[in-house]
Simulated scan of single mutants.
Amino acid sequence: MPISPNQGSTGGGTVVTITGVNLGGATAVFFGTEPAIITANTPTSVTVVSPSGAGAVEVTVTTAGGTSNPLSFFYVEAPFKSGLSASSGPTAGGNTIAISGIGFATASSVGFGSASAVPTVVSDGLIDVVVPAAGSAGTVGLTVTTAGGSNNGFSYTYVDSPTVSAVTPTSGSTSGGTVVTLTGTNLATTQSVTISGTLAPFTVVNGAEMSIVTPAGTVGAADVDVTTTGGTATLAGGYTYVAAPGI
């Protein structure tokens, strides 16, 4: 006589179906000593709503013919989240974040606002999830759902991709050290700036402007890359290294 699912929230409310034979006219279903609410019944199945409980209990079905053999049902506590490896990312999604906490062994979904994703369970205390895309930038609630219920309380912020429109001045010495103003959009969460692949020190002025100090480079045009929480923008050949004069 199978039972599905065989686990649910300690608060009760799990819809459980018990299948077998001679189950028609069921008068009672007990989870341990607690009665469940019968919502449907046929000769081969009984559907009930589980009562509240804790731990492992025996489930039995009673009909006019007697009481069935017991099946095990396991009560699961609601999950608890304690940390996120990243609380923001690009609106396009696709980045993987880790969520730590307790009670994640039965995690079935992670909600990002109205969107959701199926997590990878690493352990009872850790799950990984690929963030789904969002229609627009903004902060949404993050919810983890397990057999024990749902837990929210954390938020996740979607960030638009950056753009880079110009650098001023557009050229400087190959020895570096030139202070350059970079303009664009969505620059507030900048994590790194590189010129021809070399990291450059930077200071964010606002979401549309930052100041950078050029690293040393080689003669010629160099790409300027800005990486933010929302992604990476490239201004191809945006800065030109010029050789020092000689006489």
Rank of each mutant, 00 (worst) to 15 (best):
P5Y: 12
N6G: 12
G8H: 02
S9K: 02
T14C: 05
T14G: 05
V16F: 01
V16G: 00
T17H: 04
G20K: 10
T27I: 12
T27F: 11
T27Y: 09
A28L: 08
F31Y: 06
E34R: 15
T39L: 12
S45Y: 03
S45A: 07
V46D: 00
S52V: 11
S52I: 10
A54C: 11
A54N: 15
A56D: 15
V57M: 09
V59Q: 11
T62I: 09
G65W: 12
G66I: 08
G66P: 02
S72N: 12
Y75A: 02
E77I: 12
K81N: 02
G83C: 03
S85P: 06
A86L: 04
S88V: 01
P90Y: 04
T96H: 00
I97H: 07
A98S: 14
S100F: 10
T106C: 04
T106A: 03
A107Y: 01
S109K: 00
S114C: 02
S114M: 01
G125S: 14
L126R: 09
D128T: 00
V129M: 01
V131L: 12
A137C: 10
F154S: 00
Y158P: 05
S161V: 13
S161F: 14
P162Y: 11
T174Q: 08
T178L: 14
L182S: 06
N186Y: 09
A188W: 10
A188K: 09
S192Y: 07
G197M: 13
T198C: 11
G207P: 06
M210E: 13
I212L: 14
T218F: 11
A221G: 12
V224D: 06
V226Q: 02
G230I: 10
G230T: 07
A233W: 13
T234C: 11
G237C: 07
G238R: 01
V242I: 11
A244I: 15
I247Y: 15
